[in-house]
Amino acid sequence: MPTIRDDEIPNATGIPSGARRTDLVPPPTLAVTEELLHALPKTDLHCHLDGSMRLKTILELAEQQKVKLLADTEDGLAKAIHMGEVCKSLEEYLVAFDVTLSVLQTADALYRAAYELAVDAAAENVRWLEVRYSPALHLQKGLKMTTVIDSVLEGLRVAKRETGIKCGVIVCGIRHINPQTSMRLAELAVAYKNRGVIGFDLAGAEASFPAKDHKDAFQLILKNNVNCTAHAGEAYGPESISQAIHNLGSHRIGHGTRLREDGDLLNYVNDHRIPLEVCPTSNVQTGAVSSLAAHPLKFYFDYGLRVTINTDNRLITDTTVTKELWIAHKELGLSLDDLTTIIVSGFKSAFLPFREKQDVLHAVNEEISKTLAAFDKKRHVSVMQPG
């Protein structure tokens, strides 16, 4: 008997809600290209504000704020923050955030960073963007946490008015900062529920900083019916993922790269349809995997897990969602059919209300179908033209 994937199960309308609908199966001769992947509607569910700035913006903000950086040119700064380079560890990768955070301590800077991130995402047809950051890291010059949140939300609102992109904010607790701070951040997330904040996260270095220490903050989040996710299984083993699920009640898992080391837990994640926020290039850069070829993304997908593809840090990793999808095709052999399924999984896994998600899924399925048809027609026209 064939396996029934959750994206094949009919929704309330009797129509499958995922990418396995017959009308979404790409024409077998339609090639995967970066142009096609760019044109498709997408999500970015795992994207850090402080890791996704523009180099030019960092330099301009540093000049305005009289902040001394490691370099004063875009090329020099890119090298200084290991942009796109493989790092020795997650901790070395995180050093780059010291640079970006040094200029993200004013309301204007936070507004600009959020606005530009959303505009850049919209330019590659990201329709739903979840921006995560920790307000506790932006208080060095006396800002209040509420000012930090308000500045980012305003930047995202303006970007939405100009481009149409929809965005939500995920507030991050930090593993290596005391659990009391996570509680304050959880209280902030609860206060801003339905005002732009859509979820809570636990980020930061995994080793020596167990997720279970932050359980109280997540209990507050869950009691107030707020969505939550957690970085887990990136730089530490499956025990980190287990804690995120069973101690924190996480609805999604950030990265989950080492989930494959525990078959029983992997099946639990699969059975309960817990989405993985996969960031392939970042996982190589941080040393979570030795190479793209060694990444478990394709195994997870083939096994039936709900996987999504994301950027993590657009600047530091030097990537976009389009680039990550292209890499998944070129390096891991995922087909266009696979990629459209993963794209739809992104929308299905979004921290959106159910009814709104239904509407979004119908619109996205239709847009994907039309985009595939348009590219197939374009291909036929090209083939028929004389050389």
Rank of each mutant, 00 (worst) to 15 (best):
S182C: 12
L202E: 04
K193Q: 11
L188Q: 08
Y192Q: 10
A203I: 02
F209G: 01
V190G: 01
V190T: 01
G204W: 07
K215M: 07
L185Y: 08
G199E: 10
F200W: 08
E187W: 01
E187A: 01
I174M: 13
I198C: 09
G204Y: 03
N194I: 02
K193N: 05
S208R: 15
A205T: 14
A189W: 06
K193D: 09
Y192W: 12
I174V: 15
R195A: 07
A207D: 12
R195M: 05
L185C: 11
A191Y: 14
G196T: 05
L188R: 03
H214G: 02
I198F: 08
N194C: 05
A211P: 00
S208Q: 15
E206L: 04
P179G: 00
T181P: 07
R175Y: 05
A186E: 01
Y192L: 05
E206V: 05
Q180A: 15
F209V: 02
Q180T: 15
V197G: 00
A211N: 00
N194Q: 10
E206W: 02
R195P: 01
G204I: 04
H214I: 03
I174N: 04
S208H: 15
A191V: 13
A205W: 12
M183N: 13
P179Q: 06
A203D: 01
I174K: 07
P210E: 02
L202T: 04
S182G: 14
V190D: 09
F209K: 05
S208Y: 14
R175T: 04
Q180K: 15
I174Y: 04
K215G: 04
E206H: 02
K215Y: 08
L185M: 14
F209D: 02
V190N: 08
P210R: 01
R175E: 06
I177L: 12
D213L: 13
I177K: 14
A211Y: 00
A203W: 09
M183W: 04
R184N: 06
Q180E: 15
N178A: 14
G196S: 09
H176I: 06
D213W: 08
A191R: 13
G199W: 06
R184P: 00
A203N: 03
G196N: 07
I174S: 03
M183R: 09
R184M: 07
I198M: 07
Y192S: 11
L188G: 03
K212T: 07
A207H: 14
R195W: 08
R184Q: 14
V190S: 01
F200A: 10
A189I: 06
H214L: 09
V190L: 00
I174G: 02
N194W: 10
A207S: 13
